[in-house]
Nucleic acid binder design. Structure first.
Lengths: 209, 209
DNA sequence: AAAAAAAAGGGGCGAAAGCCCCTTTTTGAT
DNA sequence: ATCAAAAAGGGGCTTTCGCCCCTTTTTTTT
């Protein structure tokens, strides 16, 4: 019997999915969580560790990407199957990069869910044609996650005690444009704040301290 | 003839000092500045480079410590003589660490200023007994600039995407206490914001990225 | 030439950061 | 036992951040 946990802030949906999964052979849902934090809290109990987590991407408190990254590091045996309405390439890539073993759109057939779960157990991963295409495409033609020239410039300036307004002055741009760079960089790299950006930049050699 | 520049936000004072210095043999004041930024702006002109800068510590825009550090890096030939009302050990040490060749209190005799300037030219530095004592003391008994254990802990947490409130939770402290650590760390290391702290921490091995 | 991306700019708003001030509690040393 | 610190906590305020939204301008593609 494969143990599952469903993580989704929409309680109704997570309960509905639980029922569905329980109707599959060899699969049972241990419990549901409203966000990643709840899941992390539950994982301290040995008997509450699932084999698979059905993870929503957009959640409050601790979102799917963050939670998946956490699981990858602290519970590498738990397989994450992302379940989302998001069709955006950027989001899908972020989830996969965080360590998800598959990515399902919420409007897929229940039979697809079942075969996805089965393949997850037997193969270790499951990817629809769409996702597979995106994966391949991301190898060639720069992905939407790639940082632009101007954004890289911005990052170097952000690794400084300058305020964004001062950075705007230095780059001969309006403050609003610089804020735009910040927002897109945060989104691409899945960062919460400037501190995170500085650490990222140094880790990846974008800025030498 | 040794060329001087006086940098002080109190125009009257800087003018008075200029007059005084001009009355000394072998010394003349080129011009005065109201803050470090003005000085930096002037230094692009070859004929405006002084031998000595009489530098106030507390100034708006760009303070004495910052300006001295800038000069140390970009104009190492220019000698900075700090001139301040600040008697605090921490401030004095910060100025000297930034590269000042001497530190005079504003209530010293004009004869002391004259001999300080002369020694600055002949010896390269000038230190009163008081300052010399502080320097020696700072070698033994931990200086007030030394980071405490708890502050070092805080710094590690600050190199994270956590907010200060989250850091407080993690350290089992009130947010206000953590804010206190931030303020004292900023003051001791002469930092403007958390970005600066992260860079400092990584540069000095307090945090490994 | 038309359509589609990309780059630049902007409004508004709540949360976080930063900076003064100052008090209480704990701890350590004489 | 007393006194002086260091540590912890706090009030109040301004600025900066971060995050939505959305428009205009420029460049690229077809």
């Amino acid at each position: 019997m494969n143990k599952l946990v469903v993580v989704d802030d929409h309680t109704l949906l997570s309960q509905a999915i639980s029922g569905l999964v329980n109707s599959f052979e060899d699969f049972e849902v241990l419990y549901t969580c409203k966000n990643g934090q709840e899941l992390v809290d539950q994982l301290v109990f040995e008997n509450k560790r699932p084999d698979i987590v059905l993870m929503d991407v957009n959640m409050p408190i601790m979102d799917g990407i963050e939670t998946t990254a956490y699981l990858k590091e602290h519970h590498p045996n738990i397989k994450v199957l992302a379940l989302s309405v998001e069709e955006e390439e950027r989001t899908i890539l972020k989830m996969l990069r965080a360590g998800a073993k598959g990515y399902l759109l919420k409007d897929t057939e229940k039979s697809v869910l079942e075969s996805a779960l089965k393949e997850l157990i037997s193969q270790g991963f499951y990817h629809t044609n769409t996702v597979a295409q995106i994966l391949v495409r991301s190898l060639h033609e720069e992905s939407s996650l790639t940082l632009k020239e101007r954004e890289l410039e911005f990052i170097k300036h952000a690794c400084t005690e300058m305020t964004y307004n001062e950075i705007a002055d230095r780059m001969f741009l309006s403050p609003k444009t610089v804020q735009g760079y910040r927002d897109s960089v945060f989104s691409k790299l899945n960062l919460k704040n400037r501190t995170g950006l500085v650490i990222y930049a140094i880790k990846h050699g974008l800025f030498k301290p």
